[in-house]
Amino acid sequence: MRLYTLFALACLPLLGACQFLGGQSDQLRPQRITWEQRADACQGERCSLVNVDTLQFAEQAPLNALIERALLAMTVEQAEAPLPASLLDYSAVQLQREPQGQQTWLQAKLIDQHDDLLVIELSSYLYRGGAHGMPGRAFINYSLSRQRALQPSDLLLPGGEETFWQAAREAHQRWLREQEFEQDVELRNKWPFEKTANIALLKDKVLLKYDVYAIAPYSMGHPTLSIPYSRLRKVLRPEFLPAQK
Rank of each mutant, 00 (worst) to 15 (best):
G136V: 08
F181H: 01
M1Y: 04
R69D: 11
G23D: 14
N51L: 11
D204W: 05
P158A: 02
G133V: 07
I111F: 06
R38C: 04
R177T: 14
L122F: 01
P13Y: 10
L55I: 04
Y229S: 10
Q166N: 08
E36L: 12
P13W: 12
R38H: 06
G136T: 11
G159V: 07
I199N: 01
A58D: 10
A171E: 02
A168E: 06
A149M: 08
L14S: 05
E36P: 02
R137L: 13
M1I: 11
T5H: 13
L176D: 08
T34A: 11
L201H: 04
E194F: 06
Q31A: 13
P223M: 15
A41D: 14
P135D: 00
W191M: 04
A149Y: 00
W35F: 14
D204A: 12
E80K: 10
V52S: 01
Q113W: 01
D184S: 05
E180P: 10
V93D: 02
Q27A: 15
I215L: 03
Q37S: 05
R46D: 13
T54P: 01
S91G: 13
T163V: 07
R169E: 15
R169P: 03
N189I: 00
L9S: 03
R188H: 01
E182W: 10
P217K: 10
A131F: 12
E45R: 04
P13A: 00
A41S: 15
R177W: 12
R146S: 08
L207G: 04
F164I: 08
R188C: 02
V93R: 02
S86V: 14
M220I: 05
Y125F: 14
P238C: 08
A81Y: 12
A216C: 13
K234R: 15
I140P: 03
F57D: 02
E239M: 14
P135Q: 03
L202S: 12
R146Q: 13
L207N: 04
I140A: 00
T163G: 06
R128H: 09
A70D: 07
F57G: 04
Q113A: 05
F7W: 03
L118R: 06
F164K: 01
